[in-house]
Nucleic acid binder design. Structure first.
Length: 514
RNA sequence: GCGCCCCUAGCUCAACGGUAGAGCAGCAGAUUCUUAAUCUGAAGGUUCCUGGGUUCAAGUCCGGGGGGGCGCACCA
């Protein structure tokens, strides 16, 4: 931090030699610099090293919110936070001090402030970090306040803050300068509080069930575990191309092979695909794998996790997103995909049906298809475009074609269908899980089937992962696996419609150099 | 990638094609119970960039570029 002489023209009284394109912003900022430097000239350090606080806003409110108006507690405290509002009233000023827990009103009377505090108060601007000491009282109007005796500047805000009433609405600025969004918009703070509580609840729930949290590679020679296009990068040391993780699945299952019977990871995944309200190039998923269980256990676990997160982060089970109302109250229905689809298209379809027949149904329902797709993929697309959009409250959709589930175990009743489920809420996929395929030869065959798709130019098909197949040859016990989309869960719990609103620093084009 | 919309003071927003305005913030002043405090005064602008046109007149209408949002398509 420097305290160089102020180069701006406002400290210079001559109005003529300034103004080579000085903007309003420059003037406002110069004004704040000047105030800061005034303190320095008075021997007051504008950037003190530390500050001992003895109370926080929420704690004071908790203890004293029942007090009547115009009461003195005799309790003296020191508080610190950001100055968010000032209501000057001559020899009396009111201000709002906001700390991480909440906010409290400062009452600053000329007759009570120390001689040291008065000049400090004169330099305050909205947005400054300040410290205040005083007695806890209630104002005549009954608001809990600090009757301030001492004031400190802890750090100056040199830039003017957004409108104190409207906040910051420009989405561009909110995403690029999230810190400004957070300090100006309480709603944004609320969303991220829910996010942090959600992640903490998920982790706590997993820990409570004796899962161990692990970290698997993000830089991978070959991205696997999902059907998606990866980001590519390069290692200089090894001189090899690498992909960024698209899913942690294969590594996590290798850990189960290794004897970690219950593992999970809260994993940042990267997919080089479209960006929209529901998709971010980097997103967070919780993936968990545990031995001796199947996909029915996976549904139980998924339900427990989501309900625990909702309870812990919001203490509610009902949410409204846009015009929709969603009720998370368990238990959630479990429906067979093929049954549901039969109801909606008026005839029962199956992966073994001739591809021309399924194709005809797709065309009838305006589903976009590619010529190389088989019946299983077409059935999945039908589900995606005509069943999924009708979902409101949570529902587990069970049984997916093996053709679109290259890592899932086939059903004992039907080798063309996989023991796999998706949790759907509000027309979106929230979670996905299955009984893991643990038969090495079958996995190898699934990979080679995918390899054909790669050869045909499918950029999202899964390349064969021989290290993974080798690991299966050491024996993967019967295992259930689930993946839960954390961002989408947070969107629901915080009732926002854009995934960028729940990601602190979403990916954007770089700011234009100015 | 395609379609629609947006970009004006630090922030939030105005301006039938007709001298670019208001509120907040900031500045000067008044005010010892306000809480979007109030009141008075003065100030604050490369209208995203760029080129052209109808025109006496372009923030506004047309072309190109940049950034953003929404919808469609791929994906979770």
């Amino acid at each position: 931090m420097t305290t160089e002489p102020d180069p701006s023209p406002t400290s210079e009284p001559d109005p003529n030699d300034e103004q080579a394109g000085e903007s309003t912003f420059d003037a406002l900022s110069a004004e704040r610099r000047k105030k800061r430097d005034q303190l320095g000239e008075q021997g007051i350090d504008p950037y003190p090293l530390r500050f001992d606080r003895t109370a926080m806003a929420a704690e004071l409110h908790e203890r004293h919110d029942e007090l009547a108006a115009d009461v003195r507690t005799g309790e003296n405290v020191r508080m610190a936070g950001r100055l968010t509002s000032v209501r000057g009233h001559g020899k009396l000023s009111f201000a709002t001090l906001q700390d991480v827990s909440g906010s409290i009103q400062l009452l600053m009377q000329a007759s009570v402030l120390s001689d040291q505090a008065k000049p400090v108060l004169a330099t305050f601007d909205l947005g400054d970090w300040i410290g205040a000491e005083g007695e806890v009282i209630t104002s005549r109007r009954g608001e809990l306040s600090l009757d301030v005796t001492e004031l400190w500047l802890l750090s100056k805000a040199l830039r003017p803050l957004p409108d104190k009433w409207h906040g910051l609405t420009s989405t561009d600025t909110r995403y690029r300068q999230r810190e400004v969004d957070l300090l100006a918009n309480p709603e944004s703070r609320r969303v991220f509080d829910i996010r942090f509580r959600t992640v903490a609840a998920l982790r706590k729930e997993m820990m409570g069930e004796d899962f161990v949290e692990v970290e698997t590679p993000i830089l991978q020679p070959q991205a696997g575990g999902a059907l998606a296009r990866p980001f590519l990068t390069h290692s200089n040391a090894l001189d090899i191309d690498l992909s960024l993780r698209i899913a942690p699945e294969l590594y996590l299952k290798r850990l189960v092979v290794g004897g970690f019977e219950r593992v999970f990871e809260i994993a940042r995944n990267f997919r080089n695909e479209g960006i929209d309200t529901r998709h971010s190039p980097e997103f967070t998923a919780l993936e968990a794998y545990w031995a001796f269980s199947d996909y029915n256990d996976g549904m139980d676990m998924t339900e427990r996790l989501v309900v625990a997160a909702a309870r812990s982060a919001t203490d509610r089970m009902n949410f409204s997103v846009g015009e929709r109302s969603i009720d998370l109250t368990p238990p959630w229905p479990r429906r067979q995909l093929l049954d549901w689809l039969a109801e909606m298209v008026g005839r029962r379809l199956h992966p073994t049906d001739p591809v021309e027949d399924v194709r005809a149904v797709c065309e009838k329902h305006d589903v976009d298809i590619l010529p190389e797709w088989g019946s299983g993929k077409l059935i999945f697309e039908l589900y995606d475009t005509i069943v999924l959009p009708t979902v409101v409250d949570p529902v587990f959709v069970c049984g997916f074609p093996v053709e679109v589930s290259p890592l899932a175990r086939h059903s004992n009743d039907d080798p063309t269908m996989a023991d796999r489920f998706e949790l759907c809420i509000d027309a979106k996929e929230f979670a996905n899980g299955y009984s893991e395929l643990n038969i090495p030869e079958e996995q190898e065959e699934r990979f080679s089937h995918q390899a054909k798709a790669v050869a045909q130019g499918d950029l999202e098909a899964m390349p064969a992962d021989l290290a993974f197949v080798r690991s299966l040859e050491y024996g993967l016990p019967p295992t259930a696996g689930i993946g839960v989309g954390v961002d989408r869960l947070v969107m629901l719990l915080s009732e926002v419609e854009a995934i960028r609103d729940v990601i602190l620093f979403p990916m954007l084009r770089p700011e234009a150099a100015s």
